[in-house]
Design a protein around this nucleic acid. Structure first.
Lengths: 221, 221
DNA sequence: ACGACTTTGTGAAGGCAGGCACAAAGTCGC
DNA sequence: GCGACTTTGTGCCTGCCTTCACAAAGTCGT
């Protein structure tokens, strides 16, 4: 139809990536008892410009009142709905190493409608072990989890060597959304969404900027 | 003085964010004994297009040989140098909750020249406790760590409520690069670089795509 | 009831990033 | 030594994302 050819109903990816930030700010305001908010206030709480916020919201519809602002509860609900957070999202964590165990113990998932329904590991010596009050299950359980429990999101917390295999198992079972903590590029068909989180990468980017700061100082003393 | 006005010597931020991926692929190739690589091969290993890879590398200089490709070792070394990875980067982790402890136990830091030199917590009940073979130190140690040990990067793994305070302490001590795991927008002066890693945000973005997939299916059966 | 004021929603413009395609430059076979 | 071939480096072009700026639309005071 018109612009950003990204998602069916035309919400640009860059915009989608900011929606969770808006939702977070709105939730905090709601808990503070704030009932109404202007684009300026919400934008500053979310760390973006007000023009960008308004444009992002305009992709979802017209939920503000001119001259007044946005109803906090209403807007939060609209954003949650746009993100698909009206239902619970079952999540499975694959790989019970250091990181996997930390993720399993992390309580931040449930807060926003993500329910960890299973912890899995490829290694028979780990399967059966109890982690965060739950028994670790074998990879062969994946099919059942997808079909009987609607598992939709897989979190990969394996070592790099095992990540592609873990991913393949997830996809074979029918999972189409993957959050990957392993430092590898996963090969997946185009209908699958992968998001990567990598500490080393983030630190290296920080190193670049810290380094550049040093150079700038040295050049202009 | 031509295009992307991002960093002094003009490497666009988008390009910098991909360099760690190239470095990773090159390191893996080097360990496999591969001596030379074409832009096509390296690009596919890093999950980008070959044109983009070549453009990214061109910001750093001309390190390839036409008709042949790139020397793996040489290119890795040039990228590492551009990222500022020639020296060790001392890192401190603030906040010894679940996530902080997992990060403290994570061995991936040292691999690429990042050295965790201290674990800190704001809570007196946690200070002194041993985590990953190291005593947790109080926030008041920050100044000494910066001045005597060259601490440059702070990792914030506190709960959201304490993140801004932790950040302020880091900045006051002289740290100018922050990796933030807390789900809040940190207020910092412009010379400070902050990178945010947030699980909830990533999962919500995945939820959007999974959700959208459902809708597309329902619309066109 | 009307006018001044506030704030949203959006058309238009500018800038940056990604992809294409080709000239430049080097290697290899004969 | 020369021609055919391979692969890099890069100018240009296209399209998306962001910012600007303003009209539309609603509120509030009088």
């Amino acid at each position: 139809m018109s612009t950003a050819a990204t998602t069916p109903r035309g919400v640009p990816d860059a915009s989608v990536a900011r929606l969770p930030g808006y939702l977070r700010a709105l939730t905090a305001m709601s808990q503070d008892g704030t009932a109404s908010v202007s684009s300026e206030e919400l934008a500053s709480a979310a760390g973006v410009s007000s023009a960008m916020l308004r444009k992002d919201l305009s992709y979802l519809g017209s939920y503000g009142v001119r001259g007044v602002g946005y109803d906090v509860g209403r807007l939060a609900s609209e954003i949650a709905s746009a993100l698909g957070l009206t239902k619970d999202w079952p999540v499975a964590i694959v790989g019970m190493g250091n990181l996997g165990r930390a993720l399993a113990a992390y309580r931040g998932f449930a807060e926003r409608g993500f329910r960890v329904i299973a912890l899995l590991d490829h290694d028979d010596r780990v399967v059966g072990e109890e982690v965060a009050g739950r028994a670790v299950r074998p990879m062969t359980d994946l099919e059942v989890l997808v079909e009987d429990h609607g598992l939709a999101i897989g979190v990969i917390a394996t070592p790099p060597e095992g990540a592609q295999a873990a991913c393949d198992r997830l996809l074979a079972a029918g999972v189409r959304s993957v959050l990957n903590f392993a430092a590898v590029v996963l090969a997946v068909p185009p209908e699958v969404t992968v998001r990567n989180v990598d500490l080393s990468t983030e630190l290296q980017i920080l190193a670049f900027h810290g380094h550049r700061g040093d150079v700038a100082e040295a050049v202009a003393p």
